[in-house]
Nucleic acid binder design. Structure first.
Lengths: 208, 208
DNA sequence: GTCATTCCATACGCACCCGTATGGAGTGCG
DNA sequence: CGCACTCCATACGGGTGCGTATGGAATGAC
């Protein structure tokens, strides 16, 4: 019965950790890009002041780095590890596209990160992530038996389509005329079918 | 022989017009998004001061609107009118993709505009432009004889691929493994071939 | 309870940008 | 020349965000 609740009606007012700040920064990153990862606005949003922040972090750059690190881990690992179970490369491709297309409009962080790719702290992270994805998709088409040049072309088409889909779905909701969930599913099926067109047998060299 | 050149060695120092400011704003928009369309930085870049700006414009919003209007006109009209000459829809599609893929990496304005699509002044402009493009590409595939649902799917794949291509080429140069110009041309050919796969005859109803 | 440690609130200086006010160059016209 | 008009330079106030300094509250060890 210690008197712990004095004026705590408006907010919890429990103490914050560095991770709380990083999570809030990641959320702000998704909403407004790196420009929104600002100390004082985040402080008021968290119901605290700058004094809390500068106890946990050295400066604003450290906060941006923490948010980016959080994003990179959460995102890359979650997506790729979810596919590791499926042995069939064609099924993995279909699963990948279904998954990312479904999450596209609920994923503003990826859009904001790419939009801030000119920032010195963002550039290496987004490049690392995109290079990993590019290499992964290329290897996927190679595993399907496409010759290297064709695999690269299919992968570029697929990856750029995903990036553009993500951008348009987030920034201009309702623009893509895919209707409801069914329309989106049909689109993914059609797109994957095109990307897999004339697929040779798996792991069969194409030009012997 | 009037003494007109007093201290004009470092800059021309001729008087500026509102259009000069709008052009500089468009350039800044391409480099750093709407955040870079700032009065004082642009003034120093133009070798003048804010006094000049606030003579030609009411405030910063008017400058942003001028830059966006410039971009919308220059861009949409230039691209679409260049295609009006070609009667064959397949050739128009190929020409469209060749053109936009070639210009993709030299077109940072489109990327910045889409990146700033949450801005109140940018949102209606970019939505208008993208809706026009979407409708145009859909009508192109319909003209090729695809049934409406398929035309929409092909158009979505093509447009999102272009948007993603533009983003990646501008923000992460060298990431797309397309090599030199020839590699890009081959990619465009392959992508267009996939998008045109199983095309019915032009203006032939598909499901009679 | 005392006390040291952890964590936060407040106040301050600095820098940047917006918008306004005002005086003064520059130019064309009589 | 003189004068009106166009255009720009400078100075100022307000607002916001970064980073620092410093005192004080909350918490755990004893």
């Amino acid at each position: 019965m210690t008197v712990r609740y004095r004026m705590e009606m408006e907010r919890e007012r429990r103490r914050l950790s560095a991770n709380d700040w990083a999570e809030a920064a990641l959320s702000a990153l998704g909403k407004g890009g790196v420009a929104a990862v600002a100390v004082e606005p985040l402080a008021t949003a968290l119901g605290t002041t700058k004094g809390s922040f500068y106890w946990h972090f050295a400066n604003r750059e450290a906060l941006i780095e923490a948010a980016l690190s959080l994003w990179e881990q959460r995102f890359t690992e979650a997506t790729i590890s979810a596919l590791a179970a499926e042995p069939e490369p064609a099924a993995r491709l279909r699963m990948l596209f279904t998954r990312v297309s479904r999450d596209a409009e609920h994923n503003p962080a990826a859009v904001s990160v790419l939009a801030s790719a000119d920032h010195a702290l963002v550039a290496p992270v987004v490049r690392r992530v995109m290079e990993r994805r590019m290499a992964y998709v290329v290897s996927l088409f190679e595993e399907l038996g496409f010759p290297p040049e064709v695999a690269v072309q299919r992968a570029v088409l697929g990856l750029t389509a995903y990036v553009g889909h993500n951008q348009l779905a987030v920034r201009l909701p309702g623009l893509l005329p895919l209707g409801t969930q069914d329309g989106l599913n049909d689109y993914v099926e059609a797109a994957v079918a095109l990307l897999l067109h004339d697929a040779p047998g798996p792991s069969a060299p194409a030009t012997p």
